[in-house]
Write a protein that binds this DNA or RNA. Structure first.
Lengths: 195, 195
DNA sequence: GTCTATATGAAGATAGAC
DNA sequence: GTCTATCTTCATATAGAC
């Protein structure tokens, strides 16, 4: 972490959201994770936020802007984790910094992380919206390592998928956070052959 | 496999679909995997099948029936894999039968398997529609084992998520089927401490 | 910053002719 | 088995008052 900026500053969004915008984002997040982005209407968001549709449109010009704002909530934490990991001098240490943070993120926010990886609208957004795409590229680079020919790619993809989706799996939904966190971290280390 | 029925018969759907229905199902499958169920309209399905919306409604009474029919395509293969695994006498052998079939299913049909586990509409359907729920219960029982207190649950969830989602992961989309199949199977065995 | 009211289109679904 | 035409409802989005 070489940045001199205060904690709140993220390169994803230098201009912060207003309090009214944050209320909309919070409502949208909850709905997106249960109904998916495509299954969530602006009316549902407005109702959950306790305002009307027109007021939502005062805060955000389109539904897509809400989706981006919602995704940024978790991706800002991912960005911080990547910053910290990339400050290490070799991949081994970088992964030791990265993995616990990834697992924490997924456990704290189980359904959101899964949605970012799996919801069709989110998948498209992450692939096409440059700031998000860049984050994913950095993540993948850390997971796969420098050498593109070695087939570290399947384990890396599996690990990424496992951390993202295992936290929401029916087999595990009723497991407490601490147990899940410990198990996932252990699994992640085994995955990448770390101590 | 103790059933005396011919191969085509699945307990999921004793009455087969007509040719016209199959054309609709095929079109729907492709669209569901790219846009999600919620992001796919009947108009899109009709266009892809080369008929009108009204004709789609002649084949299926509701959109939900189409979703069920689409899900059955892959779940029928899952059912066969479960039948074969459960015919083995201990869990070790059952898993040795099950895992390669699961991996094959996920690789042959990458995006569909992921959608079954991740699309919000599918997740709800699988949880609430009895025939699908039963299949998932059988799968989870095989993955976790008999003893419900041991925490095999996180590895089982992670394995299930990894097989389902890794096949669609951006890191792996361009990997050929054979390589992916071999890597995933190897990972799956390591996951469950099989030889 | 929030509201009422409305425009415009597309969604799921049905009626009835061929 | 497919069509045209239509119904109803809900989607995104905007105009303009408070």
């Amino acid at each position: 972490m070489t940045s001199a900026e205060p904690l709140a500053a993220s390169r994803l969004r230098p201009v912060p959201y207003s309090a009214a915008q944050k209320r909309v984002i919070t409502a949208a997040l909850e709905l997106f994770t249960t109904h998916g982005v495509g299954g969530t209407s602006l009316q549902m968001i407005a109702d959950a936020a306790g305002i009307t549709k027109a007021s939502v449109y005062y805060q955000f010009r389109t539904k897509e802007e809400i989706v981006i704002a919602a995704a940024e909530v978790d991706l800002a934490r991912l960005e911080q984790a990547l910053d910290a990991a990339e400050a290490e001098h070799d991949r081994q240490h970088a992964l030791e910094v990265l993995l616990p943070r990834l697992v924490d993120l997924a456990v704290d926010n189980r359904r959101m992380v899964s949605m970012l990886q799996n919801d069709p609208v989110m998948v498209r957004l992450v692939a096409e919206y440059e700031p998000f795409r860049e984050l994913m590229d950095r993540l993948h680079h850390l997971l796969v390592g420098d050498d593109p020919r070695t087939d570290q790619r399947v384990p890396a993809a599996a690990l990424s998928a496992a951390i993202g989706s295992a936290a929401t799996h029916p087999l595990v939904v009723d497991l407490d956070d601490d147990t899940l966190r410990a198990s996932l971290l252990d699994l992640a280390r085994r995955f990448l052959h770390l101590p």
